[in-house]
Nucleic acid binder design. Structure first.
Lengths: 239, 239
DNA sequence: TTTTTTTGTCATAAAACTGTAACAAAATCC
DNA sequence: GGATTTTGTTACAGTTTTATGACAAAAAAA
C-alpha cells in the first residue's frame, strides 16, 4: 500500500498503554500516527491536521468518542473522514449506536492489532480508492497511483506532481464537487498559504494535457461556478 | 427519501431460517433482496444482476463465502461491490481472513437485524455516496444537492447558482407557497436589498431552462397570484 | 553549476451570472 | 368593457467568476 505521502491516522485513547500499542503497530505499517489522550484533544487535532482516518475510544475524559464522532460528522469539513470506534462494551445497543452516529466501524476490546489493521485497511480501501486499487478509472481516463501514470484513451499523458494529485483527488469521487479550499487542503496540505486562483491554473494545465492527444476533446472536468470543480462531463452523464 | 430503483442486496446463506430472517428485515427497509442458498448460486447471481451489496455466509455448500468473495474480487466487474461476510465463528483468524480477502465487513453470528442493518448502511454510505448524498425529486425533476446537478426527464439542465438555490428551496416543500420575501431571505440571505421583481426573472430563467429539452413542457412552477411561487402543476392547483 | 521541469502569481480576456428597467400580457376588480 | 394590479418577458448593463497566456521563482535533474 503505497502513496505519495503517508496516510495520517489519529488515535484517541486515554489509556497510554493501549495508545502506545496501537501506535506501535500502525507505525510499523508505515502510517503516520498522531495521538490524543482525550476527546477534546482529538477534536482539536482532527480539525488541525485532517487525518485520513480517526480511531476513537468510546470512553474518554472530557468528551466521549461518540460525542467527538457526532461533532466531526456535523461539520462538512470533517464529514468524510472515516471513523473507527473502540469500545470495551459489547452490548448491541452500543454497537449500533456507534454505527448509526456515522462511525464507519466499531471494534470491541480486546482486539488484536491484526484485526484492527484489517479493519483499517478495509475502510481505507473504500474511502481512498487510490490507496488500494492499482488504478482508478473514469470514462476513458485511467490513473495509476502507484506509478503516477495517467492514460487517456489509452495514451499516456504527462502531468506534473501537483496536477496528478489534483486529478487523483477528483477521481476518488467522480461528480463530487471539490471547493478550491478543499483541493488546497488535500493536495497542498492544510494551512498552506497559496492563492486560490492557482488551482484554476492547474486545472487548466490538466485540461490542456488531456487535450493534446485527443482531437475529439470532451471536457472531463466540470467547472461549478461559485463552488469548485468536479470530475464529470458537462453536458451528459450519469449520476 | 426515495429513489427510482431500489438498492439491490444479494444474500447467500444455506440456512433457510436465517435467510428468511434477513430477507424480511431488509425488505422492510425497502431494499430489493435476492437470495441464494449456496456459494455457486451466489456467484452466478451476482454476475447476472450486479447487486449493490452482497452478504455471504462463511460456511456454505459447494463454495464457501470466502471463496465466493475471492472470486468476486478477482474480476474487475465485481471488484467494487461491497461484501459483508457472516460467520458463526468468532476466532480472530477468521475475522481477519475475511477482511484481508477484500470483504468490507465481517459480522459474527448471532447478530441482531439492527446491527446488520447499521453495518449495511455504514458501508453503502461509503461505497455509493450517491445513495447517501441523495437527491430530491418532484415528478420528473430531480436535483442532487451535493453535486449541484439538475435533471429533468433524465436530461441534465444547466442552472446558475441562484436559480439552483431557488429551485432547491421550492423542492424542499413541494406545493408549499413561498412568498418573494421568503425566497429572498432564504436564497440571498436575510436583510439583503434586492427588488422583489428580480425573483420573477429568476423563476422565468428556471422555467426556460427546464423547457429546453422537453417539447412537451409542463410548467412545474406554479404562480400563486398575490402570494408567490410553489412547486406543483398549474392545472390542478388550489387557491 | 547549468539545464530542464514544475510551480505560483499576475494581468487581462472571456464567460457566466445577476439585477433592473421597460414594456407586454394576463388576471382581477369595478 | 375599462381601469388597475400583478406577473411574464426581454434586453442590457454591471458585476462576479473563471480561463488563459506569460513570466519569474523554485525545485529537480543533469
Amino acid at each position: 500500500m503505497n502513496s505519495l505521502s503517508k496516510i495520517k491516522i489519529l488515535i484517541a485513547d486515554d489509556e497510554p498503554n493501549q495508545l502506545e500499542l496501537i501506535r506501535f503497530n500502525l507505525t510499523k505499517e508505515n502510517f503516520e500516527v498522531i495521538s490524543a489522550s482525550d476527546g477534546e484533544e482529538a477534536l482539536c487535532l482532527s480539525e488541525e491536521i485532517f487525518p485520513d482516518l480517526i480511531i476513537l475510544d468510546w470512553m474518554m475524559p472530557k468528551m466521549s468518542g461518540i460525542d467527538v464522532c457526532r461533532k466531526l460528522r456535523s461539520k462538512s469539513i470533517s464529514r468524510d473522514i472515516p471513523i473507527i470506534i473502540l469500545s470495551a462494551r459489547g452490548e448491541e445497543g452500543d454497537r449500533t449506536l456507534g454505527l448509526e452516529i456515522g462511525a464507519d466501524d466499531y471494534v470491541t476490546k480486546p482486539f488484536s492489532p491484526k484485526e484492527l489493521l484489517a479493519r483499517i485497511k478495509a475502510i481505507l480501501r473504500r474511502s481512498r480508492p487510490s490507496l488500494a486499487n492499482d488504478y482508478m478509472e473514469f470514462e476513458n481516463l485511467r490513473i495509476y497511483p502507484s506509478t503516477q501514470i495517467v492514460k487517456y484513451n489509452g495514451e499516456k499523458i504527462d502531468l506534473g506532481p501537483k496536477e496528478f494529485k489534483i486529478l487523483s483527488l477528483l477521481m476518488e469521487r467522480p461528480e463530487q464537487i471539490f471547493s478550491r479550499t478543499q483541493i488546497l487542503d488535500k493536495v497542498w496540505g492544510h494551512g498552506i498559504d497559496i492563492e486560490q486562483r492557482t488551482i484554476d491554473v492547474h486545472i487548466r494545465r490538466i485540461r490542456k494535457a488531456l487535450m493534446i492527444n485527443s482531437n475529439e476533446f470532451k471536457n472531463i472536468i466540470r467547472t461549478v461556478r461559485g463552488s469548485g470543480y468536479a470530475l464529470g462531463t458537462n453536458k451528459f452523464g450519469f449520476h
